[in-house]
Amino acid sequence: MTTVPITVLCMPHAGAGAGFFWAWRQVAPEGLRLAPMQLPGREDRTDEQPHRDVAVAVRSLLPEAVTAAAGSAGIAVFGHSLGAVLAYELARALEERTELPVAHVFVSGSPGPWHGRVKRSDGLDDAEFVARVEELAGYRHPAFDDPEFRALVLPTLRADVAMHESYRPLSDEPIEAPVTCLRGADDTLVSEQDARRWADATTGGFDYVEMPGGHMYLTESAASCLDVVRAATLDEVR
Rank of each mutant, 00 (worst) to 15 (best):
R196Y: 01
E165R: 10
T202V: 06
G19P: 03
H115L: 14
H215C: 02
V153E: 02
P111H: 15
A70S: 14
E135D: 13
A222F: 10
D227R: 10
K119E: 14
W24H: 04
A185T: 09
D122E: 15
E148G: 13
C181N: 04
H80E: 09
R230Q: 06
G79Y: 13
A87I: 04
S121C: 13
V56Y: 00
R140T: 15
V118S: 02
D186Y: 03
V102K: 09
R117D: 13
A151N: 07
P169L: 03
W198A: 06
A84Y: 14
F206G: 02
G112V: 09
P174D: 06
R92P: 13
L100I: 15
L157H: 10
R120I: 08
D235E: 14
L39Q: 11
T180R: 03
M211A: 09
P29L: 04
A87P: 05
L189S: 08
P169I: 03
A185P: 00
A143Y: 12
H104W: 07
I75C: 06
V58Q: 00
G19K: 04
V4W: 01
A35Q: 07
E165G: 07
V77D: 13
A159E: 07
E236Y: 00
L82G: 10
P5V: 12
E43Q: 15
L154Q: 10
A199F: 01
R132K: 11
S121A: 15
G205S: 15
E95M: 09
F78I: 12
R140H: 15
S60G: 13
P12D: 03
M37S: 00
S221V: 09
A177Q: 03
I175Q: 04
A231F: 02
V118F: 01
S171P: 11
V58D: 00
A57F: 03
F21H: 08
L182G: 04
P12M: 03
A103S: 15
V229L: 10
T98P: 02
L39N: 12
L154I: 11
H141M: 07
R42L: 02
S110M: 08
G71A: 13
T180E: 01
R183Q: 05
S166M: 04
D207H: 10
T3P: 01
P174H: 11
F144Y: 15
Q49H: 05
F78V: 14
L218F: 08
E210S: 05
A159G: 11
T3A: 12
E176N: 08
S191W: 02
V77N: 13
E173W: 01
F129H: 02
G205A: 11
W114S: 11
Y88F: 14
F144P: 09
V153D: 00
V133E: 04
V118M: 04
S191Q: 07
E165H: 14
A143G: 11
R150G: 04
V54Q: 10
E220W: 01
V153C: 12
F149C: 03
L218C: 03
D122I: 14
V4S: 09
R230D: 03
T7W: 02
G19V: 08
S171D: 09
F20A: 03
V228Q: 06
T156P: 13
E148I: 14
A73I: 14
R120M: 12
L62Q: 05
S110F: 07
S72R: 12
A195H: 04
D44T: 15
G116N: 07
E64A: 15
S191M: 12
A68Q: 00
T202R: 09
H13D: 00
R230E: 01
F21K: 09
A70T: 10
R132L: 11
V130Q: 10
A76S: 14
G214W: 06
